[in-house]
């Protein structure tokens, strides 16, 4: 027991700090852009002309239909022969953004379609263009309704960032794996790494709940 605590304190935590920092970098770079992609794709599917809607549908089908890990491999190993070489970090962020964009766009699309048609009618009757109606009236309402689902996606993404170490971006899971192998202490290591994810997810959950409350409006 004492032995374990000593290992955690002296060897594990110092090694994990850096990895944790990298995990957070992945999360903070991916979530906002993933959300933006999700909103744009959902809007394109509902309000875009048919080529745009088709493009958005195909994108969602492709990224929902392939494993995220395979996607990272494709970007990391498959693009260099075409002359595009990305660092492990850029590869991971790009993959996460595209994946989160595809999934969250489905929640947002559903929410857009649940906004009553009269909202757009009223916006246009006041002289707003269709796109003004979309951005100022429909999307703000849709986003609030999509938030619980989108929040789930954010939480998935926090955990998916662990895949980055497979393409050599040593985030917290990867850092843990290295320490565990070197000291042959798998149990302690993975318990601690698990606790780190639990902490991140709990904080995200709390923030999301607060945001949901802040953005909710009567009669929603």
């Amino acid at each position: 027991m004492i032995d374990s605590l000593q290992f955690i304190h002296n060897n594990l935590l110092p090694a994990l700090w850096e990895g944790w920092g990298k995990t957070l970098r992945l999360i903070f770079m991916s979530v906002p852009f993933g959300l933006i992609v999700g909103i744009l794709v959902a809007t394109g599917r509902v309000y875009g002309n048919s080529p745009l809607a088709f493009l958005c549908r195909t994108y969602v089908l492709f990224f929902k239909g392939t494993p995220l890990l395979l996607l990272l491999f494709m970007i990391y190993f498959g693009l260099p022969p075409l002359g595009i070489s990305l660092t492990p970090f850029s590869t991971s962020v790009l993959g996460f953004i595209l994946c989160m964009g595809a999934y969250s766009s489905e929640y947002i699309r559903g929410a857009i379609q649940s906004v009553k048609a009269g909202q757009m009618t009223a916006a246009q009757a006041l002289g707003m263009t269709r796109w003004q109606g979309v951005f100022f009236i429909v999307l703000p309402q849709a986003f609030r309704r999509a938030l619980p689902g989108v929040g789930n996606e954010i939480i998935y993404l926090i955990k998916y960032t662990s895949l980055a170490h497979i393409i050599a971006y040593i985030e917290v899971t990867g850092a843990g794996k290295i320490v565990a192998a070197r000291f042959f202490r798998f149990t302690e290591t993975f318990i601690v790494v698990g606790i780190i994810y639990l902490i991140m997810v709990s904080v995200a959950n709390k923030l999301l709940k607060t945001l949901e409350k802040r953005l909710s409006f009567p009669g929603m």
Partner: peptide, 20 residues
Amino acid sequence: INLYRQKMGMVFQNFFLFDH
């Protein structure tokens, strides 16, 4: 048309107020 609509106010049976 959106320029002309500004000059024609419309009131609907079901209000269509912006819920948010």
